[in-house]
Every structure is written in C-alpha cells, then in structure tokens.
Amino acid sequence: MRNRQRNRHRGGTQTLDTMRRGEHCRILGIDDDRARGQAIRFGMGEGALLSCITKVPAGPLVMRSGRQEIAIGRQLARRIRIEQLDSQAAC
C-alpha cells in the first residue's frame, strides 16, 4: 500500500508487474529488504537490464537478465520499481 502511494506521488514510476511478455526494463529499486539481498546475488539488483519472457496469468513474472531466468512473484513485482525501455522485440 505504502509503496503504491509513493509510486503515485512520484508520478510515472512504473513497477515490474506492469511488464508484458517481450518488454524490456531497467531496475530502479527494490522495496523489500530480503528480496533486495537475494536479487543482487542473482545479478538482478539496481540498474540491471531485464526482459520479460513469461507472465503467468495472475502469477509470477519470468524475467531474463543475460542468460539467467528468474521467476518473481506478482506481489513482489509490485514492489520493484523499473524504467521501461523501448522494446525492440516484436511479440
């Protein structure tokens, strides 16, 4: 809740759950202490470039960074701030 309000205040800050298959983004921040430590180990910390390869309906998003695939629960995805990049991939 708190995070979503903050996102709205910032205006335009997007969260990971809005990604669709084939879209690309850069991670701006992860508003979850536990997940942040884990994500940075995977190479998915702040600044990492990701592309969305699967979005399970109402379920997790599967993101690729490099050759690495990571599944991220929908709730957590709402707490990951991103910047969407132009998507070259046709989907």
Binding site: T54, V56, P57, G59, P60, V62, A71, G73, R74, Q75
Partner: peptide
Amino acid sequence: LPRIAALADRSLTSLGLNG
C-alpha cells in the same frame, strides 16, 4: 521442478504459501 514452482505459485499464494 522450479518451473512447477512458478506455475503453482498463484494457487499456493491462496493457501498462504508461495511456489
């Protein structure tokens, strides 16, 4: 196995678990 976890995540969240 981890792909089953991703698939089952949604159903398991309604039982208070995750994938």
